[in-house]
Amino acid sequence: MPSVLLDMRPLQGPSAGRGIGTYALGLLQGLISQGFDSNLTLLLDADFPEPSLPAGGYKLAGSRRRYHGQLSAYEEAVALGSDLQRIRPDVYHAIDLRLAGRSPCPWVVTLHDLIPWALGGPRMRGERFRFWLGRRLLKRADAVLAVSEATARDAARHAGVDPKRTKVVYEAADPVFEPRSGAADRVRERRALEPGYLLFVGALDARKDPAGLLRAWAVAKEARPQLRLVIAGDPGAQAPRSMPGATTVGPVDKLELADLYSAAGCLVFPSRYEGFGLPCLEAMACGCPVAAYANSSLPEVVDGAGTLVPDGDAGALGRAAAALVADPEHARRAGLERAKLFTWSKAARQTIALYESLLR
């Protein structure tokens, strides 16, 4: 079995609480479940506290560097190449776009999205600048592990990656996301919320279309006037100053988020572009119906288990959400069955097969 250096440094920064952090821990737990942990070395930043990691037979390796300014991306790429020379794994696996300029071993990178280029626009200019070198180096990877078919297409279209070197391996929801007994009572007690509300989970940046979210809610209330909108998660730097009338609960832990999904009438997800769309999968795993726009990766994740409406049509989104709140049972059952197809054990097996293929 190959020795693999898995780069877990994203767990030591802002990405820890985002989709990349969820992916890192989920994949690690999946690899441990497959008995692959003794083949793993986890790369961590020695200047930051060690993150909370599941128990396993893996080793740890440290790196120390802090670069700032216009040349930081180049310096990071060179320093990471030196780390690989020192550690000498059979395979290196990057889980974000901080990539090595040169590698002495085959390397794979998990590509979560190329939204700054796929979606474009002036608000994405900073992200394009931040990740420009990673995008440029992406086509040098021996394999690109894309989290959806939509992301695989973006890799070819926006980064020039050969489709023959791309493999799609879907993410999964954390096992904590399941229908939670007593969720309605806990949500009433903690948040003074009656079950059956509309729920949005995630940052309220421009890509998530907060104006469209409010419009969808207003349309849904035409059919159900008492319907409340609950917003969970870190709103992010681009969030509007206020979301009039909505109940904002801010960041919550996984158990409370599972309760919020379980007690909701519908997840409303007006995102204009996703690399995967984890909130939709988490909601379905909890038995929460999903209404979303039909764009990017969302048809792959939802695939008939929820209601997808034309991209950008907030009115249709609101009508779909109201209909799901009124009659949720089919969507609940379909979502639960759909969510079972996505597991970290399955993702880990596919990832191990990819590692082995690089050494043949």
Rank of each mutant, 00 (worst) to 15 (best):
R180N: 01
W344R: 02
P195E: 01
L53R: 09
A237D: 15
S297C: 07
R64I: 06
D37V: 01
T166H: 07
G287F: 03
L229F: 02
A156G: 15
C286S: 07
A305E: 07
V309S: 00
L199P: 05
S103N: 05
S296C: 05
A263C: 01
L43P: 09
K139R: 15
P310W: 07
P251I: 00
P179S: 02
A223Y: 02
K164D: 13
S242T: 14
V249I: 07
G134L: 03
E282G: 00
V161I: 11
F131T: 01
A323M: 03
L53W: 11
S148Y: 07
W344D: 00
E189A: 05
L99M: 06
R18C: 08
M243L: 15
F276Q: 06
R349S: 10
V108Q: 10
G19H: 08
A283M: 02
D142A: 10
N39S: 14
T247W: 09
A314H: 12
G304C: 02
S33E: 15
C288G: 04
R360Q: 13
R135D: 09
A159S: 11
L341Q: 13
L6Q: 02
H158G: 10
S242A: 14
G56I: 13
L111Q: 03
P270N: 06
H68M: 07
Q70N: 06
T22C: 04
I32M: 10
G57I: 09
A79E: 14
L317F: 08
L97P: 14
R332D: 09
G56S: 13
A223E: 09
F200E: 08
D185E: 15
D259H: 03
G236Q: 08
D83Y: 00
L317A: 05
V187I: 06
W117E: 12
A320C: 13
F269G: 04
P116Y: 05
S262A: 03
V290Q: 01
K340C: 04
Q12E: 09
L227I: 06
Y273D: 06
V249T: 00
D259M: 03
E356Q: 10
L27I: 14
L199M: 08
I20V: 14
A172M: 04
P163V: 13
A79K: 03
L40Y: 08
Y58Q: 15
A173F: 08
L42T: 09
A94L: 12
E329Y: 04
L28A: 13
L133H: 06
A79R: 01
Y58S: 13
F129L: 06
E256N: 01
F276G: 10
A211E: 14
R102W: 15
Q29I: 02
G196K: 14
L119F: 15
G318H: 06
V108G: 14
G304D: 07
L138F: 12
A331W: 11
F131D: 10
L84Q: 00
L84F: 06
G26S: 12
P270W: 11
V176H: 03
A283H: 02
G182W: 01
D162C: 12
S72R: 14
I32Q: 12
R228G: 01
A184R: 09
A118E: 08
G318L: 08
C266V: 14
A79V: 04
A285H: 03
P10I: 04
P54L: 10
A150M: 13
Q70S: 02
P225G: 02
T151D: 15
G182L: 08
G17Y: 08
E189L: 00
L354T: 03
L229P: 04
P251N: 11
